[in-house]
């Protein structure tokens, strides 16, 4: 039966973007991401007020026609600050994921390709590093480096390295065992060449999938550190930091926290929706589970 069905005429493979936008969730996600990127790029033109100008309105003033999202404790326009906040969220997420990805992948490849004792010790160290709950590791790193936006991004990025290293190592090990690496070695290819020409292209799909799936939580993670006061510092209009600043006045002025949080939630949700779809398209094992 199965043979007969697979013989049936299958439609032609549609283009990557057609497939990416093949689910309503992914379309919504893409639209939101485009909007966030647009806000980040054109913030000075879109924001009605200066993000840092105080006394634009009465302190903790509620929503009004002039101030759509109300005002914060210093009389700053929350709508303008939320728009400027778009500059941090995705940029921070992408930076941290890039750090985790580049160093994690490098470490994983070196360990697995090195083999033998290098692999045994390396794997052990990676396992041990995975024993740090990521947030604890990130907080430890912030403690050492000092609080701040850049340090928080570094901390989140570094805390993701062991996870990427482990996945890359496992994937590389199965590749190294395959024939094409053997034959490349046999014809005298250099190690650099083997890694760049043979291993990396084969690792790319899985690394892209993991990185995409990680992006949402990376955005959330850096915002969390800012919320805890360990990342972006006032008066930076970072969404997590804005929530932290609004925390004390929630009872009297809930808008100080509702809008930055909503913006953060929508961004992370959008990234996750697109990430899910992307992993479905790129990862063959996931395909039948859609």
């Amino acid at each position: 039966m199965s043979a007969a069905v697979s013989d049936a005429v299958l439609p032609r493979q549609p283009s990557f973007f057609t497939r990416l936008l093949g689910a309503p969730g992914a379309v919504i996600g893409t639209v939101v991401i485009v909007v966030v990127l647009g806000l980040a790029a054109f913030a000075p033109y879109l924001a009605p007020y200066d993000w840092n100008a105080t006394s634009q309105c009465r302190r903790l003033a509620p929503l009004s026609a002039e101030h759509w999202f109300g005002c914060d404790l210093f009389g700053r326009d929350i709508f303008s600050r939320v728009i400027y906040g778009a500059r941090f969220s995705l940029a921070m997420g992408l930076t941290t994921v890039a750090i985790s990805l580049v160093f994690g992948a490098l470490l994983g490849i070196v360990i697995a390709y090195g083999g033998g004792k290098v692999d045994r010790i390396g794997a052990r160290v990676i396992d041990a590093m995975l024993c740090f709950p990521p947030i604890i590791l990130a907080i430890l790193i912030v403690a050492v480096l000092g609080v701040g936006l850049v340090n928080a991004a570094l901390a989140v990025g570094i805390s993701g390295i062991p996870r990427f290293a482990r996945i890359t190592r496992a994937a590389t090990l199965t590749l190294v065992a395959r024939d094409f690496v053997e034959s490349a070695r046999a014809v005298g290819a250099t190690h650099t060449r083997i890694v760049l020409r043979h291993l990396l292209p084969n690792l790319a799909p899985i690394l892209i999938v993991i990185a995409t799936l990680d992006l949402g939580s990376a955005v959330l993670f850096t915002a969390t550190l800012s919320f805890l006061g360990l990342g972006a510092q006032p008066p930076t209009p970072e969404w997590g930091a804005m929530l932290n600043a609004g925390r004390e006045y929630v009872r009297y002025a809930p808008w100080t926290m509702i809008f930055p949080g909503l913006a953060l939630f929508l961004t992370v949700m959008a990234v996750n929706l697109v990430g899910d779809r992307l992993s479905l398209i790129l990862d063959p094992r996931q395909r039948d589970r859609s």
Partner: peptide, 11 residues
């Protein structure tokens, strides 16, 4: 002796 040819597909 085996039977030559293939079973027609369901379609």
């Amino acid at each position: 002796p085996s039977i030559a040819g293939r079973v027609p597909t369901l379609r």
